[in-house]
Design a binder for these strands. Structure first.
Lengths: 243, 243
DNA sequence: ACAAAGTTTGAACGCCGTTCTGATATGGAG
DNA sequence: CTCCATATCAGAACGGCGTTCAAACTTTGT
């Protein structure tokens, strides 16, 4: 890699850094090519050498931020012993909320209307990080499955219910997994996402002064619905025999 | 009310109607004062006679849309016999999802980043419709409480955990209600919101082809966690005696 | 040393919200 | 009916935006 490529990579990184800074300080509107260029001492149109369009820049920002979220969440999960399934799920859920509240603009970028008129690249593959999130949750759901199986409603799922990309990835990492586990993982995702999303967007703050307590109770209820005992000792009870 | 006031009301209504149309057709960006004026045959600046600023227009749109959502949801709920608690919760939840998928731009406006640079009126009272939603869910939670009480985790809530506006409204309509019921209602809200939000913003579609099945399973699990039997006969079992 | 490729600038186009200056129409008081 | 305050409107203007384009400048490989 010549000197030129190095400069290019450096400038690209600086653009992303400035964009992230503006995002955090002034919200999504502050992420404008002209403003970024102004701060970097170059004209706004020069950025088009590095990103085809503003949406392309936003897209890579989303990928970066999403990746950082997953890094943090996975780290929190791995700080709990692999055998402590309830503890791992709890750690995952709490980490998602902590990150989201610490990076509300990032959360909005990933999960909400990112920025004026941004259109996600259509038809493209699902973002890598989204699959990673889903896979991580599926692993947790799979670990809880022996306990949760009996409690789940009798909806029957097929692999065809899920996108081939997701299904293939999961079956590669976790063979012999019933598709219902993936559905459970997606529901766990939604359950964590709901309260966090309401809180980040300020809908919960006007109703309750203590969203943390609410969220914690929700996670406990989630564990209970997975058949994992949670009051006092956090060890799960013995899984039931297969039906 | 003179002729003048009538004209004014009419023009105001037309502005809102055109704004809603643009919102549905072109997304949030299409809601621009200039574009609205263009379509109405008047200059963009003329709208400033009717709304102080674009954000004011957006704010009334949000109120209107939020109200229409609650009208529809309450209608769906009231189509189920008052005694069928599980059925009412199910109807509420399904109605929220149906409305959200039919009005994704409205959903984004209410719950997401509404539009470029919009700032919700700070310090103002919580939107009327939000309290209405919360109150409706609290009624459902209160009806389910005799069955759900025993299943809830032992988090203890106080009235001071909630905003005074909400707490007062609720205690006015439903006296002698434990604050834990409000917490339960907020959690129910979050639980419905999670999957719907993921679906509306397209995060679920890339992972599963059948979000409806997922959402229905989630509602069933919610009912189960409320202590309401749900397989086949939808009648709740007898409430347990007070602990 | 020189041509090819990459990078940057600055003007331009059309969009936006908002403000301001006048022009025009309306409504009520005398 | 007249007259004037008030409400409504058009149009220009300011500064912001994403994007395009021709022209200049810099680096690279030969």
């Amino acid at each position: 890699m010549g000197r030129r490529a190095r400069l290019r990579a450096q400038t690209t990184a600086e653009i992303k850094a400035v964009a992230l800074k503006h995002l955090g300080e002034g919200g999504p509107d502050a992420v404008s090519l002209r403003a970024i260029g102004r701060e970097m001492g170059m004209s706004g149109s020069a950025i088009y050498s590095y990103f085809d369009t503003r949406d392309a820049l936003i897209t890579t920002l989303i990928n970066d931020i999403y990746t950082s979220l997953l890094d943090q969440v996975e780290t929190a999960r791995d700080a709990v012993a692999p055998g402590d399934i309830a503890g791992r799920i709890l750690a995952w859920g709490q980490a998602v909320r902590v990150w989201s509240l610490a990076n509300p603009e990032g959360f909005r970028l990933i999960y909400g209307d990112p920025v004026a008129g941004y259109q996600a690249p259509a038809g493209g593959p699902a973002p890598e990080a989204a699959k990673r999130a889903c896979l991580g949750l599926t692993e947790l759901a799979a670990a809880a499955w022996p306990y949760a199986k009996a409690t789940q409603a009798s909806t029957d799922y097929r692999w065809s219910d899920f996108s081939s990309g997701l299904a293939d990835t999961i079956r590669e990492h976790l063979p012999d997994l019933p598709p219902a586990v993936v559905a459970l993982a997606l529901r766990m995702w939604g359950r964590m996402h709901g309260l966090i999303s309401l809180e980040v967007y300020g809908h919960l703050g006007t109703q309750t002064g203590d969203p943390a307590k609410l969220y914690h109770a929700e996670l406990l209820d989630l564990l209970r619905s997975l058949g994992l005992d949670v009051e006092r000792p956090r060890r799960p009870r013995t899984p039931q025999a297969s039906t």
